[in-house]
Design a protein around this nucleic acid. Structure first.
Lengths: 256, 256
DNA sequence: CGGTAACTTGACTTAAATCAACAATAGTGG
DNA sequence: CCACTATTGTTGATTTAAGTCAAGTTACCG
């Protein structure tokens, strides 16, 4: 169950991580020019900015591609520039917890230890900027703003993780799904996208493993929210929000 | 339910946070000399170290004291030097999720936003070093190692949060409690304390709100682990680990 | 088209929650 | 030091939200 299709057709023998060089060499690393408030390179002075840019590798991945696995040696920090990615941890018997969905501007692969603490897998065609730890490390020391940026990104993820702990530990299925949809909508607006037709690039199984539920419960809960008139589902990867205030109220347990 | 006793007898009118100046002015901020691998001041060169030290305030708090509340303006970063602290988030109807228990050497109050994302409350008599954001911020920029230290601490917390998300989303009550005990034991050894009589400075209700369970389930699960012979409970705030390998196996779902 | 995978819906089960005593522990003041 | 009380923790009986098992539908893709 929850098989991850290992698409590795373009493994670069010189590199330990299956991936393929971007075929848009002229495309700017979007993390550096869009949404400057939430990405690695935002707020850097121009010369330092260029210096950091020179360190990056650009990679593109097909859908359902495993970028790295939990435990792999953590040689790079990644910034997602297009597409979407899921991060998950596994138990030995196959139970899975998705600890985050990522969208353009998000960063992943942060760790202190030698190995990545989760597996990273694309949901759809995605591009990343990749910064080698070995090269980024000394740069961070000499570019205080970069170091601060890394800190801010880590803290932002930490706060998101705390929020999700509240969902998982204390919210009902309906509250979790409502929280999830509201969160996706908010993040979309932060990226300058419209709030309402929320894109769901992940499967029901992914949503279940993110919210600590089963696919059946996720499906039933979608149906229930639909019956309440809060959402409409034109197709399985899009949700229209008819009543965001009510959705938020439902996400906090208001209106039983 | 879960009332927090507001012990505010020594509120300093010049300060927005109820607390009282340490009555051990000569005591070193322990975060700076013990367990240098995991605390703010570790690995700093001597002169920079002194400079950072000069910024700190020392505070001592009685048991069950609220250090700050979720949403309070985040004016300080705290380092716990003795005692223990819980961090929690509340839903409007009183449901509570404890997002972390802290021990000497741990840091809390990290945030990007204006307000703290959780409430911090002592479990027992505790001391902290407190660094004002306003003063720490410029220092961080000029002391790269401090900035890096902050980053490392944030990432460490993030990885711990991800681990707990796996517990909350995908583990059974027994697996969660076993994971919890194993984690407390590991952290005790990291602070140079013995592994086995694990101290539980928190109530059953706190454990329940940390693991996303009820007090009844926590109690039953303790009893069950006791019957399995994995633990002994000399008193309600101590647990003897008789068989750590088995405990770890149980925490991962091995041996149903 | 035809077939597989993804999703939905229904019937039934179960792990944990809730409700309800009861026991142990820790304070408090006489 | 010992009742007396309040608080905290344990155990048992019952309920329930979500899980499991089992068909169906729908959508996707060669």
């Amino acid at each position: 169950m929850n098989a991850s299709f290992d698409v590795r057709e373009s493994r670069d023998p010189a590199d330990t991580e299956g991936s393929r060089p971007s075929d848009h060499p002229t495309q700017l690393c979007r993390i550096c020019d869009i949404n400057r408030e939430t990405s690695i390179c935002s707020r850097l002075p121009k010369d330092e900015f260029t210096r950091v840019l020179s360190l990056r590798d650009q990679f593109q991945f097909p859908p359902l591609h495993t970028i790295f696995r939990e435990g792999d040696r953590a040689a790079h920090i990644y910034a997602l520039t297009s597409g979407s990615v899921k991060l998950y941890k596994l138990l030995s018997d196959g139970r899975r917890q998705i600890v985050g969905f990522l969208f353009p501007g998000d960063v992943f692969g942060l760790t202190n230890l030698g190995g990545y603490p989760y597996t990273a897998e694309t949901l759809n065609q995605s591009s990343t900027c990749r910064f080698p730890q070995k090269v980024l490390d000394p740069t961070r020391e000499s570019v205080p703003m970069l170091e601060r940026r890394m800190f801010d990104l880590a803290v932002r993820e930490l706060m998101r993780a705390h929020e999700q702990m509240l969902w998982l530990g204390r919210k009902t299925a309906q509250e979790r799904l409502a929280s999830f949809l509201a969160s996706l909508a908010r993040r979309a607006t932060e990226r300058g996208q419209p709030e309402s037709p929320v894109a769901l690039p992940m499967s029901r199984s992914d949503i279940a493993d993110f919210l600590g539920l089963t696919i059946e419960t996720v499906s039933r809960t979608f149906t229930h929210l639909k019956k309440l008139g809060v959402i409409m589902i034109p197709d399985n990867s899009h949700v229209m929000l008819n009543n965001v205030p009510l959705l938020i109220k439902l996400s906090e347990g208001g209106a039983e």
